[in-house]
Design a protein around this nucleic acid. Structure first.
Lengths: 192, 192
DNA sequence: CCCCTAACTAGACATTGACTACTTACTAGG
DNA sequence: CCTAGTAAGTAGTCAATGTCTAGTTAGGGG
């Protein structure tokens, strides 16, 4: 066991963690492959073994973000404590909270160039939207939502979430205003 | 009158125009100050006379974008042809159209780092949101909208527009689906 | 035990944003 | 009219970055 092993072991995960924090602290402009390599104590070419591109790193970050959000959302949906309207609210609050603490990451997840995204990223975002759809389906079955085209409502819910999040990340409204706006939106969407 | 005048005359406007087109064709990664200078036939330092920063160029582009959108929105509001619900729809359609044709620019207008935006950009975005507020106020006065907190509704409308636009720019839904989603949203927001 | 390959190093290159010193041409004031 | 003064543009430089290539190391499967 040398002091400085040639093989880092989990460089990919370390790079992603550091990148996420850099994103949090300095925004996307502060994110450079070479700087990440320096902080990880590896050569400037090392990241290339795990990410062919800078874009590939960004995609991986976005994918992670979607999965983290999907985890939270699925956890809320799976909980059987609250009624469905409260679950909508909980999800929306989690979304706003994500937007506040990881504004730059959310940007990355919804950037225009993600039109032709790699499979992993596409799947991860799909997972989040599918969770929305799942909640809507369950709510409708439970009779807490008036029957309607579930896909339309899913898209609308996703749009409202992302829209409010946009207002928050760009500092046009505060996190608190975001939360109360969420309440307004859900009152409109989920009323029976 | 030399063939190649030292003073370009309107370099700033030319740079902005070219930048906008580059943004449209190649996204934000294709946008470089030096490349713009080359295409404009000036030295690589010339843009600096008009934009201290690359960020300053991006801010100017975003500002332009907001003003263009605000122009369209105000034009719709000012027209006295249609009823108010139709005006909402027209605005939303214009918004979606903007998102389709200038996805990267819209990204720039709603990027997270615009939290501390320069005055001009802040004012331009304010103009757009104020137009939304204006339409809501007029609609309410005309009795076509049930009375409610106008500011909340303005934010909600803005959020829904931007949210749907996000789904479109990221290619999660088509422009057509965006339009019909807009109809759904307005049906919810504007029903009396 | 050895070898094959993934992981990493080291060096190079073009491009870019940013800074500086200098030059040009337009403009206003006498 | 001419002459400063200044805005606009030029040319050169620098550090940083993404990307590529050739070589090196380690570690696990046959």
């Amino acid at each position: 066991m040398s002091h400085k092993p040639f093989h880092h072991g989990n460089l990919r995960a370390v790079l992603l963690d550091q990148a996420e924090q850099t994103l949090r602290e300095g925004g996307i402009d502060a994110l450079s492959l070479r700087e990440l390599a320096r902080k990880a104590g590896v050569s400037h070419g090392a990241p290339r073994s795990h990410f062919v591109d800078r874009q590939s790193l960004l995609d991986a970050l976005a994918e992670r973000g979607f999965n983290r959000l999907a985890d939270e959302v699925e956890a809320v949906i799976g909980s059987d404590a609250a009624d469905y309207k409260q679950r909508f609210r909980a999800i929306a609050t989690a979304y706003v909270h994500f937007a506040v603490t990881d504004a730059a990451l959310l940007d990355l997840m919804f950037t225009a160039k993600n039109g032709n995204a790699p499979e992993g990223l596409r799947a991860a975002s799909e997972r989040l939207f599918a969770a929305f759809g799942d909640l809507i389906e369950r709510s409708t079955e439970a009779g807490e939502l008036r029957p309607q085209d579930p896909y339309r409502l899913q898209l609308l819910f996703a749009a409202v979430m992302q829209g409010i999040a946009s207002l928050v990340t760009t500092r046009r409204i505060s996190a608190e205003d975001g939360d109360s706006l969420v309440d307004d939106a859900i009152a409109l969407l989920v009323r029976q």
